[in-house]
Amino acid sequence: MNLRVRNRQNFLFGAFLLFLGVAGIVFARDLTMGNAFRMGPGYLPNVLSGCIALFGLGFLASAFWTDGEEWGRTAWSGLLFVVGAVVVFGLIVKWAGLALTIVVSVLLSSFAATDRRWREIVPFAIGLAIACVLIFGTIFNLHLPIWPKW
């Protein structure tokens, strides 16, 4: 028998579901199950997690006998800089304020684009920061921290 992953999509999705399902059961172990007639708080979490884990096993198995579509590129740098920019936004916004944070996030995220031009992106980041401060800080007055707290 030739055991080879032929469907990468199903393999990865299956692995994810199996992991999620098992984690769901493990972390629900302190909740009382009850039964279908008198459901406890743990009933639905366990049933759902079990179903998800079964789905995971199914997809994992199917990865060996179905063919997946072509995987294409994985945008690792995109993932790193785009998600990184969001995380950095969260890390600094409380003390750096909205204006500075937006400039930093825009510049950081633009590392993900292969065709970035600094001369273009720096003024754009500043302009966007001003626009956001006006929209969110002034017009809608959402009480956000806008300037850095030194």
Binding site: V86, I102, S110, A112, I121, C132
Partner: peptide
Amino acid sequence: RLLFPAILVFCAV
């Protein structure tokens, strides 16, 4: 290349 940083910032805000 200009659009996505703007969208991203809106997402975060």
